[in-house]
Amino acid sequence: MLEALKEAAVGSVMSVKQIAIIVIPIMVAMEFLKDMGILDRIADLLSPLVRVLGMRKESAFALVIGIIIGLSYGAGVILREAKENQLSKKDLYLITYFLVAAHAVFEDTAIFAALGVSAALLLSTRLLVAAMFTFLASKLIKEEIEKEVNL
């Protein structure tokens, strides 16, 4: 019993330390990316790409914020962008479907990378699958939804 306690105490503290060493630098790097305006530039670069996924290019900002920062902050941005840029219901649904599959990707990937899993493999699989699913959904979601913009 005492041995189990010791095992848990040592093991859990070591694991937290191992993860902190990876996660803290990544969160610092993310703040730099934000302040250097790189997130906005990524959104600009991606705007032609989001059209391939069946969304209007105005969706890019909300999508990039959600992918990088996360769903809870992303949801606020999505709702605000929808009002300001008049995103259609279809755009909203597609952004959200993409984001439920892939959000806060750097934080999540950092946590698993700290356990030894390849960050590149996790990140690329997640983004690729989310994009493929969103493309599929854009073909399935009825066009009528596109016309309703009553939020």
Binding site: I26, M27, V28, M30, E31, F32, D35, M36, D40
Partner: peptide, 18 residues
């Protein structure tokens, strides 16, 4: 999001969120 202005605050916010 503020853009184009990296300062000591950037580092501070990063450390806090980390």
């Amino acid at each position: 999001l503020p853009s184009g202005s990296v300062s000591f605050n950037t580092l501070k916010r990063g450390l806090i969120s980390g």
